[in-house]
Nucleic acid binder design. Structure first.
Ligand SMILES: [Mn+2]
Ligand SMILES: [Mn+2]
Ligand SMILES: [Mn+2]
Ligand SMILES: [Mn+2]
Lengths: 216, 216
DNA sequence: TATATTTTTTAGACTTGCCTAAAAATACAA
DNA sequence: TTGTATTTTTAGGCAAGTCTAAAAAATATA
């Protein structure tokens, strides 16, 4: 149906659009670790196929058709990640690269059966919502720990950084999905956040507080 | 590691080598539905990478390295087929094309865990043996029904033709893996074979008898 | 507003994998 | 063994996707 490169571009544009309606050539280049000139080439192709709205120098946005493709790729990515963790016992920091390949397996029948086999999970191992077979899902309504007030708290429900290094760090601190935390204090000197979890105090840096999301 | 095209060529050469040591350019072209000139191009690349033994006009054979790659692809193909049938409830005639894509998922850790998850199956849905994680397996020692004598028989254990059409036909006649059959009579006029199975008589054509394999 | 900087696009080139057409090598047959 | 048919390779070209370098457009700054 679509090439691997096209699918990767559409997914990248989709994710960038969550931050701002209009996406720039350089943003796409950065997110795909490619060059702006390569992006321009691909944008012309995607526009020809009516998958994006594109006018020279004006940035791009997905059309309804393009968004549908992107959401389907994301559905596949997250379902495969769930499979790898729940059925094959991989850790949450090990699955992203494999899912990056598996999301391009074309059969929708296959992914729908996989969905059923796993009993229709709604969140992937990183807390991200899994679109259903019609592409419906609600975006996470989460806040970074850095954005909430002292003495408030919630349930750890997602991450903003999906890197292995970050996920492994969280694992070691036991700051995993589902844990209940409270912001006890914020050190004004360097913005270190002191959390209370299971009656222990945990110190996390500003960076970590920015990338760890809680449900409100 | 290797490109998708390279992997497909190596697998094709491997399968052709089961028939004869040396494989010709035209055989490869036919089996991949491509042109002889394209094959020649790829043979040079594979020879450069020491995956095949190749001298111009002399045909090719896999090196030990090439065979290892090919067997690994086949292992992945058959394990994914098993997964699709046993876990996702696809029928044996539906899984080949999906497995054709999935066999290129690169992670060996993934396939080894999948193998364990399914409790190390030894045969795929079509009766073909599944290589273990070291690439060891014994080739099927099966005979086409057309090659056995009247009043002998055995257990249906494999197919030579993997096409959807053939598999669906077998399904309809209930000529599936594991069934016990006896060759009752061979009509000399057109080589129709009359089988006895579950106390019923089943008439199959010469073509079918050639493509349906039994354990001896 | 004019100039400098940044962003984006164009121009031209490379690799992979494929094609057609023609040439070369091999195999077959009289 | 010599001519013909078949097989295989070479030559040249194309599409996808990438790159570098240079030009053009947009944006920021003085
Ligand atoms: Mn991921
Ligand atoms: Mn994820
Ligand atoms: Mn198959
Ligand atoms: Mn099979």
């Amino acid at each position: 149906m679509h090439t691997l490169a096209e699918e990767n571009y559409l997914k990248a544009i989709y994710k960038l659009q969550l931050q701002a309606e209009n996406v720039s050539t350089n943003q796409i280049a950065a997110s795909l670790a490619t060059k702006a000139s390569s992006v321009t080439d691909m944008l012309r192709k995607l526009a020809d196929k009516l998958l994006i709205n594109y006018t020279r120098y004006q940035g791009v946005s997905l059309t309804a058709a393009g968004e549908k493709v992107a959401v389907n790729i994301i559905r596949k990515h997250r379902l495969w990640e769930y499979f790898l963790v729940e059925k094959l016992n991989f850790k949450w920091d090990e699955v992203h690269d494999m899912a990056e390949e598996m999301e391009h397996i074309s059969s929708n029948e296959l992914i729908d059966r996989l969905d059923k086999f796993m009993d229709f999970p709604t969140r992937d191992p990183h807390g991200d919502p899994i679109p259903d077979c019609d592409g419906n899902f609600k975006q996470n309504d989460l806040k970074p720990i850095a954005a909430i007030a002292v003495n408030s708290g919630g349930i750890i429900s997602g991450v903003r950084d999906h890197s292995s290094a970050f996920l492994q760090y969280l694992e070691k601190q036991q700051l995993t999905i589902g844990k209940k935390i409270l912001v006890k204090e914020i050190i004004t000197y360097d913005n270190t956040v002191i959390l209370k979890m299971d009656n222990n105090d945990i110190h996390i840096s500003r960076d970590v507080a920015n990338n760890l999301l809680i449900a409100i």
